[in-house]
Design a protein around this nucleic acid. Sequence first.
DNA 1: AGGTCGACCTGGCAGC
DNA 2: TGCTGCCAGGTCGACC
Length: 273
Amino acid sequence: MPELPEVETVRRDLNAHVLGLRIQAVRVRDARVIRGTTSKKFVEGLTGRTIKEISRRGKAIICHLDNGRYFIVQLMMTGQMVYAPQLPKTPLKETKVTFELSNGTYLNYNDQRLFGRLTLFEKLEDVKHFAILGPEPFDLSFNASFIKEALKRRNMAIKTVLMDHTFVAGIGNIYASEILFRSGISPKRAARGLKISEIKRMHTMTLEVLEEAILHRGSSMRNYRDGQGEKGTFNKLIKVYAREGEKCERCAAPILKIVQGGRSTFYCKHCQH
DNA sequence: AGGTCGACCTGGCAGC
DNA sequence: TGCTGCCAGGTCGACC
């Protein structure tokens, strides 16, 4: 699914549309997306609650409720949180949960593959996933000296480490490839073999790519949609991801595809060393 | 502890 | 047209 820029876009959209609204009713059409509790308790826990704030940690959306509890959404690969002024006559097949809001509008949780998770928590400290998560890329703690220390212990390929959420939160398969292309670093390099100049460049490019992607409301490959159901436009600026065989914009060599840790990686052999 | 692998699901698409 | 196999943006638990 969506990586950090896409989730951040959804968060901002929801902030604009649903903040301060009360959840009047919750309709669960497929209980498999509800985790950690029963569908009944989930509905009871949300009905009547007002959404006070919407934040993000890594690729998770956090809705702060007026009773001090938290409603957390992980979109995973194919989840969508879409604001809708009205509902279609027949619900979409992928709409798994519908939230009816106090101003007569709706919020739909759509998911084609049921990988996504909707969970209720008493405290954020209870979220196991957050406890193992690395720093946010935009945090000051995520800097060249932190990266240098963290990479020392890693013998894995740098691409695999960039995607590892215990190292840094929010970077997935698309942006890991894009960051390394802009950094001129081969995805196959051993993480601990990077020079400090390369680490600095990678850090700068990480922020640059993520900021640009947020500005363009994310990348839409197949399933990603923003909070209004629209596609993101960062795809146009993607240089290597899913571009196998196309000419590298910089040097015209063909973009290559390899598999690392079971995931596809795209890169330019000529521009990345 | 670091590292690898398969499982979780459904649908779209390429190839035959 | 219709079948089969492969692939997909993430995360977790089991294993070495």
